[in-house]
Design a protein around this nucleic acid. Structure first.
Length: 816
RNA sequence: GCCCGGGUGGCGGAAUUGGUAGACGCUGCGGACUUAAAAUCCGCUGGCCGCAAGGCCGUGCCGGUUCGAGUCCGGCCCCGGGCACCA
């Protein structure tokens, strides 16, 4: 064995061993406790970036740790291969999206393998392959039959120059990114999945998911946004249909002074035909991007429609407006304006000179000026006729009862969550399995005609989908009546692929069913790791589709992911690493220079997984230096002859101290990795133990025994993080077995025992001294020892002691 | 605008249940080794005062609770993530 650390050699040998023994390829073993460890699969964008390396390393540490804990671990990897970047690359380079994607996959797979992740590559999934997406097409047709998918008009960003639909990302300051034309909102028919049918279950189950971060659960709760309220109709002049609105504040109903509808609302369209000013405003409203953030931050504007609605309680007429902040896609596309008790309504009323009426007074009786600002808290009703004096609950009940009795309204539960629009007017995605027939309308493609294969050999221009120009794709026969029909050219949102891939890893080769019995063994995922940016969309869609699969009898699990770890971004100079900012660091170059273990160690040591990680070239060097010290320490110990076991009872104080440190470190790192997921502090503890070993100078048999025990423990505990160097060092320490088959060490309680402990002494909460006392000393003994300390005496002196607080094993605080 | 996070030395971070602020690492400075450099090893490294012992200040800002607050509560400021067609 050479004495210097050569990572490329060490890493090649370890990886050859793992490949030769196929130790990460696993099959179902019903007797064993399984552990399914999954990372959010990457989009094959070209090369691995540091964000990938970080999340893969975090997940790999967990997988390897659980394996050492005796679990039967499955860790797969695959490719979220459909998406816009392939189309953009195709336009820029003239390469078909498929070719570009497959080439990237090959490059990235090779880079991943160089990093030594414990993946079962036999399960690799590529979502743009027909053998994968045929099953989501199949599930879509099942959902069609159950009424869980439907078609309706919805709004997209329309680039009037390129005549194409733009993603929100492609709209910059309200303009198309290529044409620079002002983007318009346009309505087109699109397919929707009825996630709202599962809203209650998706919400309720969050309370029974202890393995998810509270922040993510809160975000999902707020996103689903369940609210209880009243649905009621306002009669509008010139129409027979009442204008339906939903409110969570029926108690403020008497304060309604206007109504507002969305620009796309039929009442606005009707008024626009009569009045050119309204038409101009409605057109202007449509010239904004569809993203909610854009709508919510723009100036609140509106114009009166010149018609009025009748207040359902007072019979008074309130004016009807069209306003740019009312969204057609939320609820009914209409809202009632209560400026006295809603901030946004208040501002709108002030701006347009609409009346502001106070109908709620503070419960504590204080005076408020409603003209100076909205009062949004719950309170007591005033100016509300027969409802005066009621509190929030009583008023809501009374008013709801009134509407229910008269049949003009009803108590209702409303969700902020909207159904999932899955249609994309793009080429590089999974075809939506529908054919359109003049006689039979939209007909799902029958099972025996699936998959609907996306042609990969295309000329891609970026203007419209090439599928529209391909008769061999477009032309179909109606499955119901046999007449000529036309195939759907829209493709699925790529979130459809990523909403079920986790289950498919259990049986990637199943060609008879979407999932088979193997999924029952592996699902749910025990540990899911990925970016916090997916806290809502991807994770909520996955929870939805998992339930659809459950209800289809494909999987018993309701929740796909038992434990969730959301890792932070990789930053450099305070900003996210990105090509656009030009602050990327190529992982490949670093692996070439320092080896995979150094890169893995840096990723793990520099920050806790959930936090953003600030890149540092010097930090990488520091990790490399540590591995060199580690290597040298183990080799030096091994070269001078390995130790033989010694009876721990015969150790002297220094030997016992090192042994205690070893076992304290085992306890700490087990807790850090197994419970706390603070891998950075686990590494710090291992470094501390190695520092203790290097300071320890005792070549007696007993001394060599405690050193060997410490080094064995460090190698075992760093194995999940830096598996290659540990593989080699384990052999150097004289073990015949392969490290990959070793178990996690356990702390020996007897080694942890100690006689004296240090206690901190405070006077009035300020640190004034430290004392050493017997570990089992009682409070009085500790208090006396504390007061006897010379520096403590200086501060206590002749002052009266008011009380003394003794925190056993920690501190004494003397209050004078 | 709305929802969710975060803010601690020169830097990354530690402090796990309200109990020693700054573990571990980086940088910097000083020293050893070397013809020299690199590498390695040793020491110091929050600010201020002090010969020292030790003291005072200090966890984004303002206020509160407590014997004791980085940690809990109220109000602000700044930074990041998400907002339904980036993935």
């Amino acid at each position: 064995m050479s004495s210097a650390y050569h990572p490329e050699k060490v890493e090649r040998e370890a990886q050859e061993y793992w490949r030769g023994t196929r130790c990460f390829e696993v099959a179902e073993e019903p007797g064993k406790e399984k552990f399914y460890c999954l990372t959010m699969f990457p989009y094959p964008s070209g090369k691995l970036h540091m964000g990938h390396v970080r999340v893969f390393t975090i997940s790999d540490v967990i997988a390897r740790y659980q394996r050492m804990r005796g679990k039967h671990v499955m860790q797969p990897m695959g490719w979220d291969a459909f998406g816009m970047p392939a189309e953009n690359a195709a336009i820029q380079r003239g390469v078909p999206p498929a070719e570009w994607t497959y080439r990237n996959i090959d490059d990235m797979r090779e880079q991943m393998q160089r990093l030594g992740y414990a993946y079962d590559w036999a399960r690799e999934i590529t979502t743009c392959r027909p053998e994968y997406y045929r099953w989501e097409q199949w599930l879509f047709t099942r959902m069609f039959r159950k009424g869980l998918v439907y078609r309706k008009n919805s709004i997209v960003n329309w680039d009037p120059v390129d005549e194409t639909v733009l993603a929100n990302e492609q709209v910059i300051d309200g303009r198309g990114w290529r044409s620079n034309a002002l983007v318009e909102r346009r309505e087109i028919p699109q397919w929707f999945m009825k996630i709202t049918a599962y809203a209650d279950e998706l919400l309720a189950e969050l309370d029974r998911m202890p393995g998810w971060p509270e922040s993510v659960k809160t975000m999902q709760r707020n996103w689903i946004g369940r609210s209880e309220g009243l649905e009621l109709g306002f009669e509008v002049e010139g129409t027979n249909e009442p204008l339906e609105v939903f409110t969570t504040r029926p108690d403020t109903l008497m304060g309604v002074t206007y109504m507002a509808v969305a620009a796309e609302h039929p009442l606005a369209a009707r008024a626009a035909k009569q009045d050119p000013d309204i038409a101009t405003f409605v057109e202007e409203c449509k010239k904004t991007a569809a993203a909610e953030a854009a709508l919510e931050t723009m100036e609140k504007k509106g114009v009166p429609l010149g018609i009025s609605a009748t207040h359902p309680l007072t019979g008074e007429r309130v004016p009807l407006w069209v306003a740019n902040f009312v969204l057609m896609s939320y609820g009914t596309g209409a809202v009632m304006g209560v400026p006295g008790h809603d901030e946004r309504d208040w501002e709108f009323a002030k701006k347009h000179g609409l009346p502001i009426v106070q109908v709620i007074a503070p419960a504590d009786g204080r005076e408020i000026d409603i003209q100076a600002g909205a009062f949004v808290e719950h309170g007591i009703l005033v100016n509300s006729g027969e409802y005066d004096g009621l509190n929030f609950e009583a008023a809501c009940d009374a008013i709801a009862a009134h509407f229910e009795d008269s049949g003009r309204g009803r108590r209702a539960i409303n969700y902020r969550l909207r159904d999932w629009g899955v249609s994309r007017q793009r080429y590089w995605g999974a075809p939506i399995p529908i054919v359109y027939c003049d006689q039979c309308d939209a007909v799902p493609v029958p099972d025996d005609q699936l998959p609907v294969v996306l042609p990969e050999d295309v000329e891609f221009t970026g203007v419209g989908s090439p599928l529209k120009d391909m008769p061999e794709f477009l032309e179909a026969t109606c499955p119901e009546c046999g007449r000529p029909a036309r195939r759907e050219t829209d493709t699925f949102d790529t979130f459809v692929e990523s909403s079920w891939y986790f289950a498919r890893y259990a049986c990637p080769d199943s060609d008879q069913a979407m999932l088979d019995a193997r999924a029952a063994y592996w699902m749910p995922v025990d540990q899911y790791t990925g970016g916090i940016e997916h806290a809502i969309l991807h994770l909520l869609y996955s929870r939805f589709i998992q339930r659809v699969m459950r209800d289809e009898g494909l999987s018993a699990a309701s929740e796909p992911f038992t434990n969730l770890l959301t890792q932070g971004m990789v930053l450099k100079d305070g900003a996210k690493m990105s090509k656009a900012k030009g602050n990327t660091v190529d992982p490949h170059a670093l692996v070439e220079k320092y080896g995979a273990d150094t890169v893995r160690l840096f990723m793990i040591f520099t920050a806790p997984p959930e936090q953003a990680l600030e890149w540092s070239d010097d930090g990488v060097k520091g990790s490399f230096r540590f591995l060199n010290r580690f290597w040298t320490s183990v080799q030096a110990h091994a070269e001078s002859g390995l130790a033989t076991p010694v009876d721990p009872d015969t150790l002297d104080t220094a030997q016992r101290d090192l042994r205690r440190k070893t076992h304290q470190t085992i306890a700490k790192i087990s807790d850090d990795i197994g419970r706390r997921y603070t891998f950075n502090t686990a590494v710090a503890a291992a470094m501390e133990l190695l520092n203790s070993v290097n300071r320890f100078d005792d070549s007696s048999p007993a001394g060599r025994f405690v050193v060997q025990e410490a080094l064995d423990a460090i190698v075992l505990m760093l194995a999940p993080i830096v598996p290659h160097i540990c593989h080699t060092l384990w052999q150097a320490l004289g073990h015949d077995s392969a490290l990959i088959d070793e178990s996690w060490p356990s702390a020996d309680d007897r080694a942890l025992e100690q006689e004296l402990i240090e206690i901190v002494v405070q006077v009035n909460g300020k640190l004034r001294g430290r004392i050493s006392v017997a570990v089992d000393a009682d409070d009085d003994t500790v208090r006396e020892a504390a007061l006897a300390d010379a520096n403590v005496q200086r501060f206590v002196a002749d002052k009266a002691i008011r009380k003394t607080i003794v925190v056993p094993g920690r501190l004494v605080n003397v209050v004078v």
